[in-house]
Design a binder for these strands. Sequence first.
DNA 1: GGAATAACCTGGATGC
DNA 2: TGCATCCAGGTTATTC
Length: 296
Amino acid sequence: MPELPEVEVVRAGLEPAVSGALIASVDVRDARALTRHTGTGEHFEAELTGRRIDAAVRRGKFLWMPVGGEEAIVAHLGMSGQMLLRAPGAPPERHERIRIELENPLHGSLSLVFADQRTFGSLAIDQLVDTPDAAAGGRGSSIPRVPTQVSHIARDPLDPAFDEARFRARLARTSSGIKRVLLDQTVASGIGNIYADESLWAARIHPETAASALPTRSVNRLLSEVRAVLEKALAEGGTSFDAQYVNVNGQAGYFAHSLNAYGRTGQPCPRCGRPIVRVSFMNRSSHFCPRCQRER
DNA sequence: GGAATAACCTGGATGC
DNA sequence: TGCATCCAGGTTATTC
């Protein structure tokens, strides 16, 4: 499932291909991939054709490509979205929704394909607005602007402008379980179910612990572990369980081999040997070690 | 206003 | 072999 490391791998792969590229044509093959776009498929195609992409930028799980100073193509991969770079005329991908033909001054002709099995992901054209803190909108650009659809999302923990004081304040004033808070993209972006479980395991914190009950040292340790887990996953190319997550060339990441808690139900905790347990949580699952991560 | 929950969606895995 | 059901989970609208 694409979380921060997976989306960053995609962004880094797109950057050299799309920066400075002219959009030669756009083909919307399935309008369900435009759920966040306010216009029709025809509008999406007409608005983008002939425009030039400036960069590939990311905040949390959102990705955007500015086209001119006022607008951007916003992409969210949802659960199964893929951004693939293909040679012009390459056969359609399985679950291909949108194809954008590019003319890059350095790399020549390229096809940017948006494929998505479960159709939770989408592309959209969106207005850019100034960031409230005047810092860069996200990784990949120094310009302090973000799409309106991303403006309510907090910065991610790997962002140099991440507001730690605001993060601590949000935790201190909510009695919700810490995992629920970690998944709230307005508190800290980029963390999904996999990296929430891994970070809490590393910090030895039970996922149902009230956020406001965490002592300062636990919050410090958690934030440190969140960053360590995200950086390690990024270095290993992200987490791939099946063909749902791949980079722009269709290759899988290796972090699935480094997981300590997520998806390891019944297997021994790498720290103490007690079996990892799985509990139902918010229509999904939580994985943790009942010995290392005791509920307070 | 904050918190919790349901709905959206597809295909692989599992059970009968 | 074929059909039904379950499960995966990010975001957002709805409900409490």
